[in-house]
């Protein structure tokens, strides 16, 4: 049994699909590739395959990870080449290595993700006031409680969860950029709870109220994933 971990990039062309769609995309690509896939036991065998963390719809990504179990020893380089031929435009493999077969499952290691949100102004006559955004962000972060609706089961009452603790950091990006304004959002994710970047941006726009541009969109990009090393965050890529 060989466990191979691979890194990939998701680009504009494929950012519109959901996590389950991404899972299917990789599973079908792996099936087409002819690689010696390992299957789970039981009546409904499936490929032993995982993605590190669900990627939200309409978000591109820089440094995502997946893992797959193979029944035969396979050179990571060959793996990359073989799988790459079966992937559509918009998903690009960036590296692969053999992982310890008994290491914890990839998704269980991810605790946080860094997103970059870039503002796009559709009406060119409108200007963006950096200070207004900075102040709105400050107001948002000063709250002790930000309630987000939880996914509701049919017939059940709508419940809310406080997601403020899941916003680890949120700050204006002062670096040179082609966009009028950029935000960095470091958000908790994974089994211990999390918050979607889109929700945080919605709350920010709510804070801006009348001050927000009438025609603007956010472009979201996931920069990297993090794992927890003795209480501090380290990029997932570094342990690999």
């Amino acid at each position: 049994m060989t466990r191979i971990c691979f890194r990939f990039v998701r680009k504009e062309q494929l950012k519109h699909i959901s996590h389950l769609d991404m899972m299917r995309l990789f599973q079908r690509a792996l099936r087409r590739s002819g690689l010696p896939l390992a299957f789970s036991e039981g009546y409904n065998p499936h490929i032993r395959f995982n993605l590190a963390a669900p990627l939200p719809v309409n978000v591109t990504a820089e440094e995502e990870f997946g893992e797959v179990f193979l029944t035969e020893k396979t050179d990571p380089k060959n793996f990359l080449g073989t799988l790459a031929r079966q992937l559509p435009e918009g998903v690009e493999l960036a590296g692969a290595f053999v992982e310890d077969e008994h290491a914890p499952a990839l998704p269980s290691r991810v605790v946080a993700a860094l997103y970059r949100a870039s503002l796009i102004i559709l009406d060119e006559s409108e200007t963006v006031d950096y200070e207004l955004y900075r102040e709105a962000l400050e107001r948002l972060l000063s709250k002790e409680e930000i309630l987000a609706p939880r996914a509701r089961k049919k017939g059940k009452k709508q419940t809310y969860v406080n997601v403020r603790p899941y916003i680890i950091e949120a700050y204006m990006n002062n670096q040179e950029s082609e966009y009028p304004l950029e935000l960095n959002l470091l958000l908790q994710t994974g089994s211990q709870g999390g918050v979607a970047p889109g929700f945080v941006l919605e709350q920010l726009e709510h804070e801006l109220g009348e001050d927000r541009p009438s025609q603007a969109n956010w472009k979201l990009h996931r920069v990297r994933l993090y794992r927890d090393v003795n209480g501090s965050l380290e990029p997932l890529s570094e342990g690999m």
């Binding site: 062309q13 519109h16 699909i17 995309l25 690509a29 719809v57 309409n58 559509p88 918009g90």
Partner: peptide, 10 residues
């Protein structure tokens, strides 16, 4: 469901 309109399938 933006994928309804984007094309680019395998």
């Amino acid at each position: 469901k933006p994928a309804r309109y984007m094309g680019n399938e395998w």
